[in-house]
């Protein structure tokens, strides 16, 4: 890949991301972190494409492990984001059910 094209893509995408995230709701700081984590889960795409072009046995083993860990990370991040949205929209829990920590 031409390094100049790569650099332009990185600059444009970073600028786009910065302007997009800057307009987000400032009350939800944690969601930005979860969104970055979900996007980091897309590394599974890089891992799978590395696995399908691997030619040696050690290369296949290492990339297969990379696919396993990245799929775990991607699914975990999506699941956490889903839970965070549910927590936000969930009605407040009564103190008797909320556990000792909140009851105290």
């Amino acid at each position: 890949m031409d390094p100049v094209i790569a650099l332009y893509t990185v600059l444009l995408a970073t600028a786009l991301g910065l302007s997009g995230f800057a307009r987000s709701d400032t009350r939800r700081r944690g969601r930005g972190l979860l969104l970055a984590s979900v996007l980091a889960g897309f590394i599974v795409v890089a891992a799978v494409s590395a696995l399908v072009i691997a030619t040696t046995i050690p290369g296949m083993i290492v990339t297969a492990l990379a696919v396993l860990f990245s799929a775990q990370a991607a699914t975990t991040a999506l699941s956490l984001l889903w839970r965070e949205i549910h927590t936000e929209t969930r009605p407040p829990v009564p103190a008797s059910k909320a556990g000792t920590e909140d009851a105290l």
Binding site: L11, A13, G17, A22, A36, A46
Partner: peptide
């Protein structure tokens, strides 16, 4: 993304960096 010649991965990585810088 640069190694695999994928503009998609380049853009995704940059978006993550933007999110982290913002945070």
């Amino acid at each position: 993304g640069y190694v695999q010649e994928s503009l998609f991965l380049l853009a995704i990585g940059s978006l993550i960096m933007a999110g982290a810088i913002q945070y």
